[in-house]
Nucleic acid binder design. Structure first.
Length: 923
RNA sequence: GCCCGGAUGGCGGAAUUGGUAGACGCGUCAGACUCAAAAUCUGGUAUUCGCAAGGAUGUGCAGGUUCGAUUCCUGUUCCGGGCACCA
C-alpha cells in the first residue's frame, strides 16, 4: 500500500467539508484562541507561493491550539477593493465586481487544495455591500465624533455642539493650531457660535470631526486626465505612457489619526509586537519635544514660525529654510529674486515627496528676505529648499549648520558663513549634532551645557511671547479618499458646500454601476460621470484600500449580523486576536489604522478592548526574481540592459513569464497589458533584448509571482505545507526556490512506510516499545511542542525527519510510538495524519485527539560526552558522569593523553568546567 | 536621504541563555539492489595541508570585550522591506 497522497488529500478535504470539521462556535466551554492571517487582496494572478507561507504557519498554530484544547477561531476572507481590479477593468472592460468574483473563486480553489482549517462560513469580502455597509457605518461614527482632548477619548460631536452653545470653544481649541475664523480669531463665544450661519458652524465642526474634509496634494497626470497612485509614477512620469506628473491640490477626506498619536504609542507597551515593529511604529508617529519659535521678517508684519527640537542652538542659526509650499513665500520674496523663486517652485512641483527626501543634491534659492533672531536680533537670510517638507512641523526651520548635517551641506553649497557655537566640538568639516557640548559664542548661554540650555531658551522666549514649548508629531492625518471607482462610496451628500451624513437607515450606499472607469472632470473619480449619482449630490470620492481592513477582524466574530457590525457579546467572547500573522510591509499602514479604529470603537463603547492584536508574528517575505526593461524617457523605445547607460531611461517591471532567463520575448511584450506596448521599438544587443534582474518581494504588481498549484499537484498539499515551513524561519525573508521539495516528499513517504509497506502492506504492530523507541518519541514530542509554540516551524519539520530516521533505523513499527507521533504531525501534514489515524482504527478526526504529553523520564541520561578545549580550541572529547564535580573533572582531564600532549608539560592556569556544557583548559 | 531588518558550506538553513559551527534537507560523489531504469538503501561531502595520524583556516568586512563570540559592543559594506494613493 503506497502513499497515494492525491487520493488521500481529496478524500479528506471532501470529508472535512461535509462534516463541518472546521466550523467554530461562539459558544464553548473551552478557552478561546483567535488566530488571524492578514487577508489577501485577490489579484488576477492568483495565489502565489508567498501567500501560503503565513497561512500555513497560522494553520499549524491553530491546529496545535485545537489539539491543546482551545476553541480556535481561524477565519479567512478577501480585501477585495483596490486599484488593480480597476486597472484591469480599464484594460479589459471587465467590471471589477466580475473580475473580483472570479479571482476570489480562484483563490478559494487554491486555498482549499492546501488543506487549511478555515471556517469558511465566516468568510468576509470587503467589496460586498453586506460588509461595506458597516465600513460606511463606522465611517459615519467617525464623521459624527470628535476627539475630546480633556478626557482623551472620542465622543459624539453633539457633545461638542452642546459645549459650543454654553461656553464657545474655550474648552476645545481648534485641533489645528493655525486655524482661524474669518475674523482672524482662534476662539469664539457661545453667543458668537449661535450667531454663525450653518455654513460657518459646519465648517467649524469639520475642524473637529475624526473623519473630515480638507485639501491635499495628489499625483496629477494631465495627459491621462487622472490622479495616479505613487506606484504608477516612476521618476516623475507616469508608468503608463511616460507622461509628466505634477502635484495638484484636491479636496480630500482625512482621518484624524493624530488625535490618537499618544494612545497609539502607549498601546505599544501592552502588545507583543517585535521590538523592530514597535520601533517602526513609534518612529512613524515621531513624537518629539521642542519649541515653536517666532521669527519676525525684516520690513514685514509677518511672523515666520519654526518648530525646532533644538532651541539650545538658537545662537547658531545662520539662515532659515521654508518649504516650497510655504504661504509666506509669495509675500516676502523680493522683486530681485522673484523669477529665480518661481523657477525653483516649478521644479519642485514636479518632484514627489519621496524624491525630495531622498535627494542628495542640494537645491534651493534665496527669497531676498531676512528673518530676525528673536534673542539677538541678528538678521538671517530666508531660503527655500525642497528638503523642508510642508507637512512636518510648521514647514519652516531655523538652520544651524554647525549642528545639523543637511543644514551644513546647504550652507556650504550656498557659501553661507557658519557660526560655531560648539567650540572645539565642531571641526568645520562635519556638523556635530551633540547635546554634550559647552555652548560658545551664544550670548547669555555661553558656557552652559547644551542639554540644559533648551529649557532656558524656551522659558526666555515665552517671557517675550516669542515662542512656546511644543510637542510635535511626524505622523500626519491619514488621507482617506481616492479619486477611484472600486472602493467604498462615502455615505455623504454635499449641499451648498456642506457635507451631510446619510441616515444610517439608508446604508449601505451601494456602489453605482458605471459604463466607463474613466476619471471624472477635474480629477474627480469615475462616480462623477454618473448623472444619477451627481443628481443626489453624493460624494464622488471613494474610500482607500485600508478602510475595509481596519476592522475586518471584528466582523469574523459575527459575520452574518445584520443589525450590528459585530455584537458586543461576540466581541467580548473572542476579544483580542491572540495571534496575528502577516508581513512587515504593513508595519505602519494597516497596523496603525486598525489600531486606531479599534481605539475609536472602544471609546464609543462598541467593543471592550482597545488593542486589536495581542501578539503579532511577522512572516518574512518570499522573494521573487523580477525582470526589468528600460524605456527611453519620453519615447516608446526600449533599450537592452547592457546599453541603458547611454540613454536617460525609466526602469519598468515586465512579467517574468515573458522572459527566458534574461532575454525578453519582444513579441509577447508587444501584446502584453492589452497592447499597452504594441508600438514598442527595441534597441537590442547582439540581436537580443536583455532584461536586468532584481530580487524583490513576490507580488503581482512586480510581475514576478510563482503559483503553488503545480507543486501541490505534483507532490501534494502536505508536502507543500511542510516544504514552505522547511524553507527557513517564518520571520525571515527568502527567495523562492522549489528544488528542495523532494526531500520533504521523501520524508512523508518514509513516514508512511513506518505504517504501510508497498509490498508487505500493513507493518504496524501492537508490540510494546523499547526504551530507545520511547526516547526517540519523547525527544520529538518535546522539541516539536517547543518549536511549534515559538513559531520555529522549520526546526520542527527537521525534528520529524530525525525522528522518522531514528524509528526506521530501530525498525520500529509500533502503534504505541507511531500513534502519538501522528497527533504531532496533524498540524503540519493534516491529510496524511487523518488517513493514518483512521487506518490505525480510530474513528473521528485526529484533530479531536489530545496532544501527547512529554515525559522527562524517557530522556534521562547519566553521562555526557564533553568537548574539551585548550585555550578555547577544541582538542578532544571525554565522556563524563553528569554529576561529576569540578575536582573530579580536573583530575580526570589531566589523565587524558590529548590534554597532556597539548599541555607540553606545563600546568594549567585554570580549568573551566560548565556542567552539561563544556570543559576549557587555560594554559 | 530617513526608519527597520538580514548576511553562516555549492544551495535552503541549524546552533533556544556567550560553551563541540554546519543538525535536517537539497545537490553532488562512491557503493548496494536491478538486464537496465525508477524507487529504495548504505557511506562520504566547509576550505586547505597531509598517505595517514593530525594540523591550519573558517559564520559579509575591520576592530573590541571574554577562558571561550555565529551569539555581546563599536565601525563599515552589500542585500531586502517601508517612507503616507500597491495591498
Amino acid at each position: 500500500m503506497e502513499y497515494n497522497f492525491r487520493a488521500i488529500e481529496s478524500k479528506w478535504q471532501q470529508h472535512w467539508k461535509n462534516s463541518g470539521t472546521y466550523k467554530v462556535s461562539n459558544d464553548s466551554s473551552k478557552p478561546k484562541f483567535y488566530v488571524l492571517d492578514m487577508f489577501p487582496y485577490p489579484s488576477g494572478a492568483g495565489l502565489h507561493v508567498g501567500h501560503p507561507l503565513g497561512y500555513i504557519a497560522s494553520d499549524i498554530y491553530a491546529r496545535f491550539k485545537r489539539l491543546k484544547g482551545y476553541n480556535v477561531l481561524h477565519p479567512m476572507g478577501y480585501d477585495a477593493f483596490g486599484l488593480p481590479a480597476e486597472q484591469y477593468a480599464i484594460e479589459h472592460g471587465v467590471h471589477p465586481a466580475v473580475s473580483t468574483k472570479q479571482n476570489i473563486e480562484n483563490f478559494r480553489r487554491q486555498l482549499d487544495k492546501i488543506g487549511f482549517c478555515f471556517d469558511w462560513d465566516r468568510q468576509v469580502n470587503t467589496s460586498e455591500a453586506t460588509y461595506y455597509k458597516w465600513t460606511q457605518w463606522i465611517f459615519l461614527q467617525l464623521f459624527k465624533s470628535f476627539y475630546n482632548r480633556n478626557n482623551s477619548r472620542a465622543e459624539s460631536i453633539n457633545n461638542l455642539v452642546a459645549a459650543f452653545e454654553t461656553t464657545g470653544n474655550s474648552d476645545h481649541a481648534f485641533p489645528n493650531a493655525n486655524y482661524k475664523l474669518a475674523s482672524g480669531s482662534k476662539t469664539f463665544s457661545a453667543e458668537e457660535w449661535k450667531s454663525f450661519d450653518e455654513f460657518t458652524q459646519q465648517s467649524i465642526l469639520m475642524e473637529y470631526r475624526l473623519a473630515y474634509c480638507g485639501y491635499g496634494e495628489v499625483n496629477w497626470c494631465e495627459a491621462l486626465g487622472t490622479v495616479l497612485a505613487n506606484d504608477e509614477v516612476i521618476n516623475g512620469v507616469s508608468e503608463r505612457g511616460g507622461h509628466p506628473v505634477v502635484k495638484k491640490k484636491l479636496r480630500q477626506w482625512y482621518l484624524r489619526i493624530t488625535a490618537y498619536a499618544d494612545r497609539l504609542l502607549e498601546g505599544l507597551e501592552r502588545i507583543e509586537f517585535s521590538d523592530a515593529m514597535k520601533e517602526m511604529q513609534s518612529n512613524w508617529i515621531g513624537k518629539s519635544y521642542g519649541a515653536e519659535i517666532d521669527f519676525r521678517i525684516l520690513d514685514h508684519d509677518d511672523i515666520l514660525k519654526v518648530y525646532t527640537t533644538r532651541p539650545d542652538t538658537i545662537f547658531g542659526v545662520d539662515f532659515m529654510v521654508v518649504a516650497p509650499e510655504h504661504e509666506l513665500i509669495e509675500k516676502i520674496t523680493t522683486k530681485k529674486h522673484r523669477q529665480e523663486v518661481e523657477d525653483y517652485l516649478a521644479y519642485v512641483k514636479s518632484r514627489s515627496e519621496r524624491e525630495r527626501m531622498a535627494e542628495k543634491k542640494i537645491s534651493g534659492c534665496f527669497t531676498g528676505a531676512y528673518a530676525i533672531n528673536p534673542l539677538n536680533l541678528r538678521e538671517i537670510p530666508v531660503y527655500i529648499s525642497e528638503y523642508v517638507l510642508a507637512g512636518y512641523g510648521t514647514g519652516a526651520i531655523m538652520a544651524v549648520p554647525c549642528g545639523d548635517e543637511r543644514d551644513f551641506r546647504f550652507a556650504k553649497h550656498f557659501e553661507i558663513p557658519i557660526t560655531n557655537i560648539l567650540g572645539d566640538k565642531f571641526n568645520g568639516e562635519d556638523a556635530n549634532p551633540t547635546y554634550d557640548a559647552e555652548l560658545q559664542d551664544s550670548d547669555f548661554l555661553t558656557g552652559m551645557m547644551m542639554r540644559d540650555a533648551a529649557e532656558v531658551v524656551v522659558t526666555d522666549l515665552e517671557g517675550y511671547g516669542r515662542g512656546k514649548r511644543k510637542v510635535n508629531y511626524k505622523m500626519r492625518d491619514a488621507a482617506f479618499s481616492r479619486q477611484r471607482y472600486w472602493g467604498e462610496p462615502f455615505p455623504i451628500v454635499w449641499k451648498n458646500g456642506i457635507a451631510y451624513p446619510l441616515n444610517e437607515k439608508e446604508l449601505p450606499l451601494e456602489l453605482a454601476h458605471v459604463e466607463s472607469y474613466k476619471p471624472g472632470p477635474e480629477g474627480e473619480g469615475p462616480l462623477a460621470n454618473i448623472p444619477a449619482w451627481i443628481a443626489r449630490d453624493l460624494e464622488t470620492n471613494t474610500m482607500p484600500g485600508y478602510a475595509g481592513s481596519s476592522w475586518y477582524f471584528l466582523r469574523y466574530m459575527d459575520p452574518q449580523n445584520e443589525v450590528e457590525f459585530c455584537s458586543r457579546e461576540a466581541s467580548d467572547y473572542w476579544g483580542q486576536v491572540d495571534l496575528y500573522i502577516g508581513g512587515t510591509e504593513h508595519a505602519v499602514g494597516h497596523l496603525l489604522y486598525s489600531r486606531m479604529w479599534t481605539k475609536f470603537l472602544f471609546d464609543l463603547g462598541y467593543i471592550g478592548h482597545d488593542e486589536p492584536y495581542k501578539k503579532l508574528v511577522n512572516q518574512g517575505m518570499i522573494q521573487g526574481s523580477s525582470r526589468f526593461v528600460f524605456r527611453i524617457r519620453g519615447t516608446h523605445q526600449f533599450v537592452s540592459a547592457g546599453l541603458k547607460d547611454q540613454y536617460e531611461t525609466d526602469q519598468l517591471h515586465v512579467d517574468v513569464n515573458m522572459v527566458d532567463g534574461f532575454e525578453l520575448d519582444t513579441e509577447a511584450f508587444k501584446k502584453w497589458r492589452n497592447g499597452e506596448y504594441a508600438n514598442a521599438e527595441f534597441i537590442l544587443e547582439e540581436g537580443k533584448y536583455i532584461c536586468s534582474a532584481e530580487v524583490e518581494k513576490m507580488s503581482k504588481s512586480k510581475f514576478n509571482t510563482v503559483n503553488p498549484d503545480d507543486l501541490v499537484e505534483k507532490y501534494g498539499a502536505d508536502t507543500f505545507r511542510m516544504y514552505e515551513m522547511f524553507l527557513g524561519p517564518v520571520e525571515q525573508s527568502k527567495p523562492w526556490d522549489a528544488k528542495g521539495i523532494e526531500g520533504v516528499h521523501r520524508f512523508l513517504r518514509k513516514f508512511w512506510r513506518l505504517f504501510y509497506d508497498e509490498i508487505k502492506g500493513r507493518v504496524w504492530t501492537e508490540e510494546k516499545p523499547t526504551d530507545a523507541e520511547y526516547k526517540a518519541l519523547h525527544k520529538a514530542i518535546k522539541k516539536i511542542e517547543e518549536d511549534t509554540e515559538r513559531f520555529s516551524f522549520n526546526t520542527a519539520v527537521s525534528t520529524f525527519m530525525v525522528c522518522a530516521n531514528e524509528l526506521s533505523e530501530l525498525k520500529c513499527n509500533k502503534k504505541a510510538i507511531l500513534e502519538p507521533l501522528l497527533v504531532l504531525l496533524t498540524a503540519y501534514a493534516p491529510h496524511t495524519a487523518e488517513e493514518l489515524w483512521s487506518l490505525l482504527g480510530n474513528s473521528g478526526s485526529v484533530l479531536d485527539a489530545s496532544f501527547p504529553v512529554f515525559e522527562q523520564k524517557y530522556l534521562v541520561e547519566s553521562v555526557k560526552e564533553y568537548p574539551v578545549s585548550i585555550n578555547g580550541k577544541l582538542r578532544t572529547t571525554m565522556v563524563l558522569s553528569l554529576d561529576a564535580t569540578q575536582q573530579q573533572v580536573e583530575e580526570l582531564v589531566l589523565t587524558n593523553d590529548t590534554v597532556l600532549k597539548w599541555l607540553e608539560g606545563k600546568s594549567p592556569k585554570k580549568i573551566i568546567y560548565v556542567k552539561n556544557k563544556m570543559i576549557n583548559i587555560v594554559v
